[in-house]
Write a protein that binds this DNA or RNA. Sequence first.
DNA 1: TGTGTCCGAGACGAA
DNA 2: CTCGGACACA
Length: 681
Amino acid sequence: MPTMVSMSPLLQSLNAEQRRAVTTTEGPLLVLAGAGTGKTRVITVRAAHLLEKGVAAEQILLVTFTNKAAREMQERLLSLAGKQAEGIQVSTFHSFCIRLLRQHAAFLNLPSSFGICDGSDQITAVKSALRELRIAETAIHPRAAQSRISLFKNSLISVEQAKDQADDDWDLGVAMVYEKYQQHLQRSRVLDFDDFLVLSLKLLNEQETVRKQLEDRFRYVMVDEYQDTNGPQYGIVRAIVQNHQNICVVGDDDQSIYGWRGADISKILGFEKDFPGATKIHLLTNYRSTEEILDAANKVIRNNSKRHEKELKSALGSGTTVAILRMEDESHEASFVCSEIDHLVRIGEAHYRDIAILVRTAQQPRSFEADLRAMNIPYHLVGGMSFFDRKEVRDLLAYLRLIANPADETSFLRIANIPARGIGKGSIEKVVAAATAAGEGAFPTMRKMVESGSLGAAPSKGFQQLRTALNQAHALAKQGDLVALLRTLLTSIHYRDEIDRIYPDEATRNLRWNGVMEVLNFAENYQRKASKPTLQGFLEELSLNENDDRDQEDQGDAVTLMTLHAAKGLEFRRVYLVGVEEGILPHTRSVTEGHVEEERRLMYVGVTRAQRDLTITYCEARAKFGRLQSCHPSRFLFEMREKEPPQGWVPSGAPQMAQTAAPAPRKAKSVVTGRKRRKKR
DNA sequence: TGTGTCCGAGACGAA
DNA sequence: CTCGGACACA
């Protein structure tokens, strides 16, 4: 216990639990920070406290999952501890690993200029692997294969092991796709997101000097959002701290919602086992939400079996009741929510910026967007189709990536004939076959083929045009003038004409061109901010920095419409949690695959975003594939009200025939009675 | 080789 | 309903 006389002003602003977390500086420490319990505050004050104790800033490493979080931490640190905090390294796992890999590329036999294979490139690579293997996409879903491959990588399972383990055709097919996929990445000289982590881990495991170097430098390591840590990330942290054990992880097992991305909740559940002698601290005082909201959250989440038991307590006290409302269908739902928002703002009860509409799936926003627009309610949509998924943006980026890394096959194939320049399907096929056989990039392969005259006149001519355009741009890339590069490129490929040609509609045309201009803006910004702007750096930033449109402040006074996944970490005075139905939340697929607990955490995340007012809606029916289908309120709503589902309620994932049989086993699982007693203490 | 149209399958979340 | 792929055309 620190004595009062020596307590620094830093610590005085904290509650007892938080203070204990901050002052426990040595040895492994697990901070279970429930939603709204001042997690960021604890992390930043803890770092500042370390500095106060005389630890050099350079010895502190703070790992986050998103760039946004990293930036926020950095800012908070500067305001807490001033200039000396600048030396603290705050980075995401991914950027930390990329830097490490570029430094030690030689050891891993990597080109130091490797490119980044993002999500949609991964799908493209999987698809081309399937085509190569003559496997129909209906037999093996590209997306399913991709996520399995990612799982293989994160579990350090090699292609050979995957093949050995396969015990049916599907598994074997995926293992073969995995092999082709890896070859594709290799000859394209790109790494996917999993590679960053896995290769970094390999580096640390096999190069003791590198590991030692990091261990000596980073004497104090903190990991934010530890519940989202996957196997390789855990391994990396562990390798750095294994001797000094000064590892502090902060997170909330109840908010682990990235299992499908490889996040391993057992890491936060088993921290004390992984790091014997660890201190465990619960932060349970919630400064965000009213008692009613936390009560609803607690009642839902306690139905999970795999968790650290805890219940949040509100520091705010009582407020309004949580409303659970039944809607006819999704258009009624949307118009109800929008009218209410409109009304509340009109009577001065609320600001747009204080309101969020949270959805489970990316297509739910559709009905809401229509109504929001019709009612002139300013809003911004987060998640779903990202700016970087837009066709024109991806085209342009493919050009840039090809300039930075001529071996990049996906990018080459994407723009080889955009705009059309006589390189058709036939020649593309020939080039891919040759590139695959040679294990080289498609662009260099095609150059050789053109030079040896093994391609027709039209494609050869087209290729020369492309090459000229790229060379010209490449020269400007070397000078670091990205804006000039983009302008030159756009001119030389006549991209404006291409857009005008494809989109006869004036409005779409402008919209598309705006996307292109937006990339120019990004480049301008990057060039201004970066100390040493390079094309590679620019592309890296674009791939790693999710475009942070989550910032409410940046959006002016507007309603936020977003997915639950995007909402984690944010808070709003008033929240509408919509579409809370069996089949959506929990999602059918999660139910059939046995991931209901993660869905429940998603529900929990949604509920705990609200500060004062929470309205939950569910629909009686909802359009699926253009056809209206009836649906049932989510099991989580019954849990929340401690009620049994009524007769005729059909849980998602249950076969339609077995309506009477299905609820029986679920009852025992979802309705936990006898817990009420434990709640009051 | 480039363009247009039709058809059928399809939908979870994203650094 | 909405996308992408296949196929048929110029």
